[in-house]
Each structure stands twice: as structure tokens, then as C-alpha cells.
Design a protein around this nucleic acid. Sequence first.
DNA 1: GTGGTCTAGACCACG
DNA 2: GTGGTCTAGACCACT
Lengths: 125, 125, 125, 125
Amino acid sequence: MGVIAVDTRSRRPIYEQLVESIRKNVLRGMLSPGEQLPSVRSLAGELTINPNTIQKAYVELERQGVIYSLPGRGSFISENVSVLAKSNRDKHMAVLREQLAAAHEANVTRAEVLGIINSIWEENQ
Amino acid sequence: MGVIAVDTRSRRPIYEQLVESIRKNVLRGMLSPGEQLPSVRSLAGELTINPNTIQKAYVELERQGVIYSLPGRGSFISENVSVLAKSNRDKHMAVLREQLAAAHEANVTRAEVLGIINSIWEENQ
Amino acid sequence: MGVIAVDTRSRRPIYEQLVESIRKNVLRGMLSPGEQLPSVRSLAGELTINPNTIQKAYVELERQGVIYSLPGRGSFISENVSVLAKSNRDKHMAVLREQLAAAHEANVTRAEVLGIINSIWEENQ
Amino acid sequence: MGVIAVDTRSRRPIYEQLVESIRKNVLRGMLSPGEQLPSVRSLAGELTINPNTIQKAYVELERQGVIYSLPGRGSFISENVSVLAKSNRDKHMAVLREQLAAAHEANVTRAEVLGIINSIWEENQ
DNA sequence: GTGGTCTAGACCACG
DNA sequence: GTGGTCTAGACCACT
């Protein structure tokens, strides 16, 4: 389960990094619905992080509907991943719209943006 | 000097809002090089904000090279605005590159991004 | 004995679900006084649940007077069902009183409650 | 600010009691929009409870939209109380519908329920 | 063993 | 002073 990675020295809250890391892995299909996550304590030991911090991340993920926790049994990947993927896409579109407008105001040209796009989306698409 | 606006109810640090607000006004030409900024105390009174917070914003702006302070005389808009505009553009390009890559990963299509771009950059450009 | 149903994915303790499920079946007459319940081990196998959990539920049911266990012979539905029905009714009345008071505080009107009641208790009653 | 009360000896989580207590006071109008709540530390001291527990309650209240917290400044009652009141009413209606159906199944009579209702809603309403 | 709650004590950025 | 994050260590109910 080495897919979950956090940088303790970053200023970003560890629990937030955990949430994003697991969220991403679920959306990418690296973690499948129903699959059991490492226990709070074991993951804490593995990453040498306090169990409370892991707990906080798991609670947030459950609130987001990414996982669900059964006391005394463990934590598991939620079933409705497709819904999550959809809402994730929408969020990205909204952020992009905002960023692009800001770039436009800063005199970034249309050609420059298209250049970036071409370097990311392969031509044959 | 009503151009400097902050939202005390926002979660965002007030001093950060101040920095961005002044920065933006300089980039847009609302504040011209050499122009004198309101004093820490007068601006604090005007916005009913703690003077420490204004001071913190001015220090940060000076660090960024947007303004310069002459002890005993006041703070003034820096002369090298073009340099600022350049660094601002670069920053926007870097952020865009990151956001676009993330959107690509989230299965946002090239066509969708182009649609957003067309709605922002007028066609005849 | 497919009447006893539990949802392992529910957040609710499994033993609690078992207690309620059996309790309900007794009150509804699906399980008659004197009838023998499945053994701890057989039920555990049937529901693929830890025997300890079944045991815990049976102990609780015995404490409530719903069943009685004869060591070496098995567990049986208790005879005094009417007593159970009575206490069950009382519990419902108490809960209702509390809920209605809370609804009243939340500005739910008397008319609204009467509407719900009419939709549940058929008019000719 | 003695309106916020918790029972440390209850099995119910303290932070949950806090959430409900404050939520209720807001819905009742005892706490008005914009009003500042006691600080995490001061309330912790007042109730002789760990600050982390208060913090947990405040975070949950913010998630529910009941309050908002500004780091370094304090926590405040949210403005959109009417929306909250509406959703609170809806929730109560839903719960009532369920409870009344269960009572009906347990052979509670319509007359009995009406009796309870009359004791709660004053006749002249 | 599991997740959930709580205390005690600490550090940080912000005002 | 404020809220936000984190660690260390403990107890609980449930499986």
C-alpha cells in the first residue's frame, strides 16, 4: 500500500495531503470500491504519523463519500465512485474557467494557452 | 482611495487581500509609479483594520518590489512596473500549466477546454 | 429461517440489528412462543458472522425476556409475548411524545402532523 | 453565555452535545446572526472541557453552515438562519413520519396519538 | 484487532 | 488574544 504518500515537511496539513492522495487513487482506479483501507493504526505506523491525524483524514473522506468506516471492522472504499468522478470533473472545469479568465486579464495570449494545451493533450485526440 | 478593498469576513488573511488588491491596482494602472500610498495609520482608520495588519501588507509589498518605503516620508509605488507585469504573467502561465494537467487527468477533454477559452478570448484576437 | 436479516455494511452494530430483527419477528408473530431458535454456530454460519456476535445478541434478548436459553439444549422464544407487546407499545408512545415535542419546537404545525397521521391511520378506524 | 450546556457523564459524545446545544440556540433565536461565540479556549475553560473537543464541535457546526470561523479573529453565528430553520423543519417532518408509521405497526391507536398531540399543541391553534 | 472519543500539551499564522 | 494543526497517550464499544 505504498501509494499513499505524504510530505511531513510541507506546510500543507498532513491530513489534507492524505485526503487528496487517497481521493486521487480512488478516482484513478488504483483503489477499488469495497476494498479495505489500511487501519488507522497501521497506516499511522507505516507513515510514522500520529493515528489521530489519519483518523481526521478518514473522517473527512467519509464526509465526502469517498470511503465509509465501520467501527470495529475497518474502513472501505465507497461504491459510488462514478458520482465522485463526475463531481470531480465539474470542479476542475469551474477552477479552469476562473484561472483562464485571470490569465486573460494578465495579458496571457490565446496562442500561449493553446501551446500549453497541445503539450498536455496528445494531438490525436 | 476607495480602490483598496478588503473583505473582513473572508477566510483569507486580510494582509494577503491587501497585498493582492494593491498589486492588482498597480498592474492595471490605477496606481501609478511614484504615487504615494496612504499612511499605515490613515489606511487602518479608513478600513477599520488593525494598523499591524496594514504594516504587514506594506512590508510584504516592499519585499515583492511593488512599493518602496522611505522612513519618515511614506510609501510609494515602485517604478519598475513592467518587471512586475512580466513576473505576474509568468506566474499565471505556471499555474495554468498545473491546472490544465490536473484537468486532463480528471478526464476533461481538449474540446471542453477550448470551449472555455473561446468564451474568454474574443474570437478576433 | 431467512427472516433474520442483518446488514453487515450498516454502521449499526450487528448484534443490535440481530436483537431488533428477532424482537420484531416475535412481535409480529413470525416467531411463536416456545419455538426454537437456530443455534449460535448454525446462525453464525448462515449469516457468515462471528459467533461471538450472535452470542451477544442472544444474551441481550434473554436479558430482555424475549427468549430463554437452556444450556445444552438451545434457545427458545419466551411465552410472555403480550408483556413484550405492551412494553413495546409503551416505548413507542414515549418516543413519540419526545419527537412531537421537538417537532413543535421546530415550528411544525398541528395541521401538518394531523396530515401525516391521516395518511398512516386509515380514516375508518 | 450559560445557555450552552453539556453533560460530561452522558454516553453521548460531548462534541455532539455541544453541536446540538448551539444549533438549538441559534434556531430558537437565542443566538443571533453575526454574534460572536465564546472562543474555543474560553468555552473550554468555562465548561472544564478540553479545547480540542470544543474545536471539533465548532468545525462540525461550520460544516453545517450554522457558524463560521475566522482564524485569529473568532467564531460567529452564520447569517442564513432561515435556511437552516427550513431544513430543520423538513428533517423533523421526515422523522415524525417514520416514527408514526412504526407506532402504528406497534398497535398504538390514532386516539392515543391525538391525545399526545393535544397535550403539546395548545388547543387554540 | 477495529474505529471513535477525549485529554493534555504544544506550535503555528493571524490580528 | 484567535482558530488550526499535530503529537502522545488513554479509554470505549464492537468484531
